[in-house]
Nucleic acid binder design. Structure first.
Lengths: 255, 255
DNA sequence: CCCATCCGTTTCATATATCAGAACATTTGT
DNA sequence: ACAAATGTTCTGATATATGAAACGGATGGG
């Protein structure tokens, strides 16, 4: 085999086993021993043995007597990962950055049914109280972080919202058509904007942290009193939060 | 997991490497070499080397200089799998419908050996916690979704169950004759009913999603606390889930 | 400030997996 | 029924991974 001279030590057994697993997971139906050995440039006997190992470990099962397919075990493991993902650690530096850039209250939120839950925050450095605490929640349809998450997966979530658009202020979007339009605007802007839709005179910006497939797992948010927003600052703040969220998304992948 | 009748040869490198990956995926933050080696009963040097391999293959990354964590690569591979089954997409609207009709926890599950794995759910809208998460699993013989799948293919699966009917509550059906009778009832009703056979005081209903040849590929389920079930509601809920599953089955045909 | 202790890393005989090639068994297509 | 695939099992020489011990850096307590 042509090994890279830069990354010297790889256990070939593990490497080949994982390659087989990847191949099987990528194929809709199963693959046979010979097919796999050709694709991965391995001997038949080696491929067969690795498949046997993967089978007894539960990662692979035989379909009929001539082909193998990946089980859901790989998916379950990956699922565990996403659930245990330490968003706080990943997003921490970006929260700090946003705080320094704006001086306003910065939030990290995750979706929970039709609400978002704050899992981290940095207080405003201006002498203004904040209402939201870590562990607290807010309706998904009327805050920046919530609408950013909605926008990332609107097709899946829209139907659940109909009839559940509770009013909180006179600016809350309570009919689905208005929300449709707002979400469309959010999608094209790349960040969400709430103009006092949850608390009177409190604005919030939000942008989603997404996995490679587009699923939103969290959102970054900036919240500030209406009076603090200078003319033309909305675009700047929106861009800040959008780009910070993009950096966190990328960090989830690469570390 | 009781399939160790024979002991086929397993490649230890692959086996250990996957064990490490599983451990890392299950841990919130990273783990160190020594910690892993103790947990998995491996030597430090072996663990170190496997971690090095997993790192160059992109499955693992170093956090700081003293610990390793799993990347999202495992998740991406597993995702490929469920993406190819577009069950979730097909069943989504029916899950939503069941949620609206009942307000209880709704599940979509697929069979995996002698268990079922939850691949999607909608939380109860009532203030009751649910234990089952997406990615989690449950024994096939004592939950509604599992028994629905069993009922669809009982002739093929019955023999594998003998001797594997683990007890979970005092209502669990642990002898094959009792299960035979329950499955027969399930088949004539068109939906499965679990009366606290897996968790005390938790009822669940299930109905199978089947291919035209009768093979069950998934099941829809509704789970609720015993106390939520009004007299005579069982028939109504059973019919709801049976018909929703039938609609999903039909949808699989037409695309 | 030093020492005991922990950790990640490296080293090197030895145990283990891999390779190639072939043979055998079983299925599929004509 | 025959031929051409495919999955499965051997074999022993070679390449590779393994375990035990040692190394060097970091940490924390006395």
């Amino acid at each position: 085999m042509a090994d890279q001279s830069k990354s010297p030590k790889v256990d070939s057994t593990l490497s080949k086993g994982l390659a087989i697993l990847e191949r099987l997971a990528a194929s809709r139906s199963g693959k046979g021993v010979t097919e796999l050995s050709r694709e991965l440039d391995l001997t038949k006997s080696n491929t067969f043995r690795l498949l046997q190992t993967l089978t007894t470990l539960g990662y692979v099962r035989r379909l009929d007597n001539r082909s193998y397919a990946a089980t859901l075990k790989t998916w379950q493991i990956g699922r565990n990962l996403v659930e245990h993902l330490d968003l706080r650690e990943m997003a921490g530096p970006e929260l700090t950055y946003l705080s320094k850039q704006t001086g306003e209250a910065i939030y990290l939120a995750v979706p929970e049914d039709l609400a978002i839950v704050y899992i981290d925050k940095i207080d405003s450095r201006k002498p203004i109280r904040s209402w939201n605490t870590v562990g607290g929640s807010a309706p998904i349809h009327c805050v920046g972080t919530g609408k950013a998450i909605l926008a990332a997966n609107y097709s899946r979530m829209r139907d659940k919202l109909v009839g559940n658009l509770t009013r909180h202020t006179d600016r809350t979007l309570t009919n689905i058509e208005a929300l449709d339009a707002d979400i469309a605007a959010t999608q094209s802007r790349g960040y969400a904007l709430d103009r006092g839709e949850y608390r009177e005179h409190i604005l919030s910006f939000g942008a989603a942290v997404t996995l490679p497939d587009g699923v939103a797992v969290a959102a970054l948010g900036i919240s500030l009193p209406e009076i603090n927003l200078a003319e033309g600052d909305a675009g700047r703040i929106g861009a800040l939060v959008r780009e910070a969220a993009a950096r966190v998304s990328e960090k989830l992948l690469r570390g």
